[in-house]
Amino acid sequence: MMDIIQKEMSRDRRAFIKNVLGGTIAGSLLLVIPAGAMDMGNIPEQIPGMRDDSGTFISKKRKFAFIVDITRCIGCGSCCVADKNEYQVPDGMYRTWVERYVIDDEDNVYVDSPNGGLDGYQQPRKDIPHPVRDTFFVPKLCNMCEHPSCVQVCPVGATFQTEDGFVLIDDKRCVACGYCVQACPYSVRFINPKTKTADKCTWCYHRVRKGLLPACVNVCPTQARKFGDLNDKESEVYKILHQPHVVSVLKPGMGNKPSLHYVGLRREVV
């Protein structure tokens, strides 16, 4: 059984690399990033189609999607570790986190997220009074809404939506009034005590714009996190969102239209 899963996973990885080598980047076989673009040697690209003919990165109107597959998450917390490393997130603040749901025989739902899942889940919940009938993990991160509440309420234009659909924060203009933190229905924003500005997951914009996958997607050992451009019909995210999967978003009633989709989302998840 393990082998079949392994084959699946390596096939997808091969497909990515094939795309890069096979020239969906029209005519360009550049695996070497121009010197100075990155501080760290040569990192092969992971997202096809990020460059134009001359090899420069382009930001045309894209439609990125992030998919979290709950049926695959094992709660290892690699994603949280990678995120904290990438952005040096202060302790007690979380750009992404993983929640554990435990459901007992009487349909009571117990949720916890010790340190946001950063240390993984090393202990089971010992305080459940009834027999447990089901358990699962739910990773959470910025939903990158199409109609973001946070952008609507920012008084100074410090948080905004780019042309490629990312909601970002301008560290130099934010006054840390905290209105965006209140307005986000998904609680993904916080005030960073070091920079004294608002902060949140940005789907690793600085990586994506250089053709790399977000840090958490890159490290997930079970491919529970997926990322891609919906304009690319060969991408995994396109295929998933156009198949009859049971795919859903969190809090659809809010009207924010998240670009973060869940496969296997359970009704107990808020």
């Binding site: 501080d39 760290m40 990192i43 092969p44 301008d170």
Partner: peptide, 16 residues
Amino acid sequence: AVVDEINRPIRNGTNA
């Protein structure tokens, strides 16, 4: 601000 974010140093590599 968009350029600032793009120029943020990348800290994680990839396995490759």
